[in-house]
């Protein structure tokens, strides 16, 4: 559990927040805004909190506001993992 990839993110999003019927999460979503994927801040709070627990990282409070896309969120998570002591 030392890197955080798209597959894992999609899996966690589905578990923590469900998925919008019209959105294909298995497609190329890396740079699609979370909003367009059907995820609001609550969905992301739930998902981020799960990531923090599963990966033993602490992400800043602002992560949900800062990370607008899956790629941005994954970068922040992977930075967190790299800095983990």
């Amino acid at each position: 559990m030392d890197t955080f990839d798209t597959t894992t993110l999609v899996q966690l999003l589905r578990e923590c927040a469900g998925e919008e019927e019209e959105v294909d999460l298995d497609g190329d979503i890396l740079d699609t805004a979370f909003e367009d994927l059907g995820y609001d801040s609550l969905a992301l709070f739930n998902t981020v909190s799960r990531i923090e627990r599963d990966y033993g990282v602490e992400l800043p409070d602002e992560v949900v506001a800062v990370a607008q896309t899956p790629r941005q969120l994954m970068d922040l998570v992977n930075t967190g993992i790299a800095e983990r002591v």
Binding site: S41, L42, F45, N46, S49, D61, V64
Partner: peptide, 8 residues
Amino acid sequence: DAIKATTA
């Protein structure tokens, strides 16, 4: 806490 609605 889970939705960061309260101040820390």
